[in-house]
Computed example of a mutant assay.
Amino acid sequence: MSDKTSFSCGEYLDITQVSNLYGRLQKSLQKSVNIELKADKVNKADTAGLQMFVALKREISTTDGNLIWKNPSEGLINSAKLLGLAEELGLE
């Protein structure tokens, strides 16, 4: 297993993308328990998308891994704050 694997979040972290993103994230978890999320291009994030990352963060924490945000966009941060998930996701 590698030290960390990078994952591009794309432009949309919403319900239309959750299934696809979840499958890709599970493959990333097979490579490393430390996931670096490239989130600079995220334009839209909704409850479903952010809940998926809450679940992922909890799953990773059971294996002593980390969820690392790289350059989270203002849109992502604002959505997380609006939904009350910024602190839990480490986006504050």
Rank of each mutant, 00 (worst) to 15 (best):
K41R: 12
R24M: 10
F7I: 10
Y12E: 12
S28Q: 13
D46I: 05
E36K: 08
G65M: 04
S79N: 03
N34S: 04
F7H: 13
L76W: 06
A86D: 15
K27E: 14
S28N: 12
E88T: 14
E74N: 09
Q17W: 01
K70R: 13
Q26N: 12
V33L: 02
C9L: 15
A39M: 03
I60L: 13
G90P: 10
G23H: 10
K44Y: 08
S6P: 00
K31F: 00
E11I: 03
Y22V: 00
K41E: 01
Y22F: 10
T47M: 01
A39E: 00
L13E: 03
L82G: 00
E11M: 11
N66S: 12
S6Y: 01
G75N: 15
S73Y: 02
F53M: 13
A55R: 12
N43K: 14
L91M: 07
V54Q: 04
T5M: 07
T5E: 10
L25T: 03
I68V: 14
R58M: 10
L83H: 06
M1K: 08
N71T: 13
K44C: 02
Q51C: 09
E92T: 14
K44F: 07
K4G: 00
I77K: 13
L82C: 09
K27Q: 14
E87M: 12
K57Q: 15
G23L: 12
V42Q: 02
L13D: 04
L67K: 07
S2R: 10
N78D: 13
L25G: 07
L85E: 02
Q30R: 01
I68A: 01
S32N: 04
A45W: 09
K70F: 03
L82V: 02
S6V: 05
D64T: 11
E88D: 08
R24C: 06
G49V: 11
A48P: 09
L67Q: 11
G75T: 05
Q17L: 04
G23N: 14
L29K: 12
T62Y: 12
W69E: 00
Q51S: 09
I35Y: 05
D3K: 15
D14W: 06
W69L: 05
G10I: 09
P72A: 06
N20R: 11
L50P: 12
V54S: 05
L83E: 08
K70Q: 13
I15P: 00
K70T: 09
L89A: 09
L89W: 06
A48E: 08
S32E: 01
N71E: 15
